[in-house]
Design a protein around this nucleic acid. Sequence first.
DNA 1: TCCTTCATGAAAATGATTTCCATTATTAAT
DNA 2: ATTAATAATGGAAATCATTTTCATGAAGGA
Lengths: 157, 157
Amino acid sequence: MPRRNGMGAAWWQGKFKGCGYRITLSREAIIDVLTKANKHLSAEDIYMRVHPKYPNIGLTTIYRTLDILVNIGIIFKFDFGDGRARYELVENTKGLNYHLHLICVNCNRIIDYTDYIDDVIELIDQIEKGLSLKYNFKITNHTIQFYGFCKECAGKE
Amino acid sequence: MPRRNGMGAAWWQGKFKGCGYRITLSREAIIDVLTKANKHLSAEDIYMRVHPKYPNIGLTTIYRTLDILVNIGIIFKFDFGDGRARYELVENTKGLNYHLHLICVNCNRIIDYTDYIDDVIELIDQIEKGLSLKYNFKITNHTIQFYGFCKECAGKE
DNA sequence: TCCTTCATGAAAATGATTTCCATTATTAAT
DNA sequence: ATTAATAATGGAAATCATTTTCATGAAGGA
């Protein structure tokens, strides 16, 4: 039985059931698309990719499922400022999928990068600890994004 | 003639005119509200505060003006994930207004903080330089936000 | 099997932001 | 100043991603 990764075929199903959710065809299909794409997708992107094979899965179900997945920490939800959210698996086949985004405000192109990740993670950890104490705030998540003009769009300002 | 800050009464007007925009009562009123509030406001927040004194300034004008102000770098636009944007002066009376946000995903309370700012700025500078070179990307802006549960909302998850 | 609960899809609602368009204000040129 | 050209405005209508509603279908437990 071939496996997509080292976490077991149903790596997400445990967490899913544990939180009281049922495992359905729709949900499997949506997670499958996210796994295969391995990059940020909008709800509609996902709908487009699910639809050919499962034409009876509606956009509403996509949104509802994404909501659950965000809440139980299986995917991240991003806002790149173009009016539609993007979703991305927290873990991909290579393990933890941590990276940052560089967003072109002109053409909306997004570059994923991992440069300086170690420094970033170190600082983030430090900040999270410090803020938790000082403000009694339980940090669950964070966002770091850079905006600007990509190679093609530089000068078009 | 009392001044609100050390930058001159019309500190923003130069930049404004320089970019080819006219200075109008509406625009003055909007910037005035942002200056006095000295914190992030939504378009509607601004409308509410402008309306009593200038009932003929419409929401559309607010949005248009905010758009201009963001583009010429007088205000920042933030998305805290609750579906409405917030706007905030880049500079306030004390000088540069750099700070970060802690966002409660339950009650949407936002805590501004400046802890670790020096470390953050140093790392950000370093990253910006590095990424500019590597990806030929001209960074103009960035976002760093922490999400979680505030003191009151912790445990309500 | 029956029953309670969860999941679903289609259509309608929502709500922040944009677009349209006719009117008014502002600037530049004469 | 007066005028011509351009920019700004507000109200209403349009957009559009996301949510809600509601009636129906599927899944698991007693």
